[in-house]
Amino acid sequence: MKAKVYVTLKKSIADPQGTAIKGMLNKIGFSRVEDVRIGKLIELDLGNVEKENAEAQLTEMCEKLLANTVIEEYRFELEK
């Protein structure tokens, strides 16, 4: 089973990279862009696992390693 994990900075955490990209977008003609936040997309192949097991594993992976929950949020999607 394949999965995508999205890790993003919490709303309360400033994202200097996003701010810089927002400035660039505004500068090259996309003047209406009001906010940019940059995160990570992690693609995984979990092998042959049941959906419930996959979800439990992904949660544990995110809590332990893939995200730092002090500053980041995560969510994931499973693909058949």
Binding site: L9, I13, A14, P16, Q17, A20, N68, V70, I71
Partner: peptide
Amino acid sequence: LTEVGLLPGALIRNRNL
């Protein structure tokens, strides 16, 4: 030390990148 939770908080990208 912040990643293992021995110290609170986190260290993120410098303000000026």
